[in-house]
Computed example of a mutant assay.
Amino acid sequence: MEQNQEDSIRRQAAQAARELAESAGLKSGKVLVIGTSTSEVAGKRIGTSGALEVAQQLLAGIDEVRQEFGFDVAYQCCEHLNRALVMERSVLERLGLREVSAVPVPKAGGSMASAAYRAMTEPALAETIEAHAGLDIGETLIGMHLRRVAVPLRLTVRQIGEARVTAATTRPPLIGGERAVYRLQGEPDSTFCD
């Protein structure tokens, strides 16, 4: 990969992460889940051409923003590790998540999860998480790791390299409110639910 391509990927990743952090209000104590296909970033089909060099550039851009805003990051592994998540052990323990055992490698976990695992101080894998926001680089399907209710965000960064970028924040479910119906017409008024 040429230096200008590496720089471009790092800048695009940082810009996408920054826009998401600002829109979603990410700060200390919040978690961003990231799913990435480095194959897609490189213009190949997902799962066919993973590249640690691409992952390292993405990681550098995202980490720059993580340090600025103070949020935590969980990197989704590929389906060969059941989409487990790489994070710092301190985050896993703080959130009381279920730990699973594996070391992600490019062919089982993916290049991004593998690079993140090696860059962390004390990496750990969690089975699942309910993150506050998500960044999907290359259509890796991170929705299973977002809190309810996911709210799509349209970033100005629509692609990183050749990969499509999708972002979401989350909000608590709206229970009640002006659109809620509490009683059907013609039914007796009742304060109890069956």
Rank of each mutant, 00 (worst) to 15 (best):
M120T: 05
Q185N: 07
P173Y: 08
L153A: 14
L146F: 09
G47V: 14
G50R: 05
T38G: 02
L26W: 00
Q76I: 03
L153K: 10
Q57N: 00
G61Y: 01
V149F: 10
T170K: 05
T169F: 01
I46V: 09
L95S: 04
G186S: 14
E40G: 08
K107Y: 11
G96D: 02
F69Q: 08
D189P: 00
S111M: 02
G161F: 05
E162I: 03
S114K: 00
S37I: 14
R158K: 08
A42D: 09
A115S: 15
L146C: 15
K44H: 11
V73R: 02
L141Q: 13
L58R: 08
G110F: 01
A131L: 10
L135Y: 11
R148V: 15
M120P: 09
R147Q: 08
R148H: 12
L52A: 12
R94S: 15
L81I: 05
E79A: 12
K107Q: 10
G61P: 09
D136K: 13
V149M: 10
V86G: 15
S101G: 08
G70D: 11
S90A: 12
P188C: 14
V103P: 00
S101C: 06
G47K: 02
L184G: 02
R158E: 13
P188I: 08
P106V: 03
L52S: 06
L135K: 03
P123F: 00
G143R: 06
E178R: 09
A14S: 05
T166K: 15
Q3S: 12
I34R: 03
Q76W: 04
S111L: 04
E68A: 08
L20D: 10
E130Y: 04
E88A: 02
R164K: 08
A16P: 03
R148T: 02
G70R: 12
V33H: 12
G25C: 07
A14G: 12
G176M: 07
H145R: 07
R66Q: 15
R89V: 01
R147A: 05
C78K: 00
R66M: 13
D7R: 15
E6Q: 10
V41S: 10
E187V: 02
A124W: 13
D72I: 00
P104C: 04
I129E: 12
T169H: 01
Y182W: 07
E127S: 08
R10I: 11
T48L: 14
V151C: 12
R10K: 08
G110D: 03
V41N: 11
A60H: 02
H145W: 03
V100D: 07
G35N: 07
R147T: 01
A24P: 15
